[in-house]
């Protein structure tokens, strides 16, 4: 893992406040922290969701996210970056993912955070399965996620 980056895949929940405090600790150059939390909703595709299971590709998941964070670090000023993504069984209102970026200024922090989420949604090997009243179903990837990732393509 590169310096100034932390990527964790875990079943346990995370404490956003503690994670951001740790991210900020001991670095007076940090002027901005931008973060994103993904949360399990109780409905998807018009149906109620009772439980969600997150499958992943052990080994590749960490590598893929580290590479995405590396790309963000090469494009924006990122003093430190944290990605925590949960796996296993989750319920509605549970936290799924945290992305937190520390920078000198807010423009880079916001952009890097959004970029990492857009790329994670389209490139990190996780697969969601929802348990509904009428059985289990695999969540379909969305075209809107591909479009969101495409926005970040560098021109020329």
């Amino acid at each position: 893992m590169g310096v100034g980056m932390s990527v964790r895949i875990q079943t346990a929940d995370f404490d956003v406040s503690a994670e951001i405090a740790a991210l900020r600790r001991g670095n007076p150059k940090i002027g901005a922290v931008a973060s994103f939390i993904g949360v399990v909703r109780d409905v998807n595709e018009g149906g109620a969701v009772a439980e969600m299971t997150l499958e992943h590709y052990p080994g590749m998941t960490e590598k893929a996210i580290e590479e995405i964070v590396d790309q963000a670090r090469s494009r924006w000023q990122v003093l430190d970056a944290l990605v925590v993504h949960r796996i296993g069984k989750l319920k509605p209102a549970d936290q799924i993912v945290l992305v937190a970026i520390a920078s000198g200024h807010r423009a880079d922090a916001f952009a890097a955070c959004e970029f990492i989420m857009d790329y994670l949604k389209t490139r990190a090997p996780f697969w969601k399965q929802e348990a509904t009243g009428s059985g289990a179903r695999w969540v379909e990837a969305r075209a809107s996620d591909d479009i969101a990732a495409e926005r970040w393509r560098l021109k020329g």
Binding site: L120, A124, W127
Partner: peptide
């Protein structure tokens, strides 16, 4: 080598 559907994390 791994084969898989389009990813749906995050």
């Amino acid at each position: 080598i791994a084969f898989f559907p389009p990813v749906t994390g995050g």
